[in-house]
Amino acid sequence: MGWLALALSLLSVWPAQAQTPQDPRKSGFAYMGRDTQAMQQDDLANPAMLTVLEGEALWTTPTGKAGKSCASCHGEARESMKGVAARYPSLDEASGKPIDLSGRIAQCRETRMEAAPLVREGRDMLALSAFVGLQSRGMPVAPPQDERLRPFREEGARLYTARMGQLNFTCAQCHDANAGQKLGAAPIPQAHPNAYPIYRLEWQSTGSLQRRLRNCMVGTRAEPFSYGSAEFIALELFLMERAKGMTIETPGVRP
């Protein structure tokens, strides 16, 4: 309960706008070695940009029975998708529940394009979400302040501070209480969601925030939530609120 209270009280004091120099929050970027930082900073050296390239091609490729591409409705992504990834997960009016960016892309493809559903964590889904995510690069994380999202965000905060797995850890024990310390030789970052999808050197591929969360859960010997589960979307809502105002780096590189 103490953890939950702390997490929720922190929510209210974090700034709505961009980070100030006094802000104790740090992107995972700050904890990386110089080589890995350089890889992210150069678009022609960042392997996640290959995923973005694929997404850019998919954006204008018509598919499905409706014969439409993303661009048929949304036009130039540079304009229409600017800032979009910064405010997901958001409220899905139809269901009254939060929906993450991958969920929205899948929904759009199924209902508007009448195309086969895209698999979460599949190549095409990652490509489209990385391409859409790139359009928010440099912008502050801006979670929607919709009251209807509050119970889901609180559930995310609860999960963040809930003990899990055989090691009986909470997310907060590592990423709040021990952030900046080392686990083995690796620094423990603050677990901000501001660079996803990322190219993780460990994966040797591009992956989503949920893949990263699953890795963490496996690390604590917990049974990971499934992709697209309500738990992950709640956690993502909480993490985005916790990172409010931090700069989006998508597509990031992480060790």
């Binding site: 030789a185 690796a186 890795n215 690390g219």
Partner: peptide
């Protein structure tokens, strides 16, 4: 070579 703390599942 140091190992990352959390490896792929």
């Amino acid at each position: 070579v140091t190992m990352p703390a959390c490896v792929e599942e």
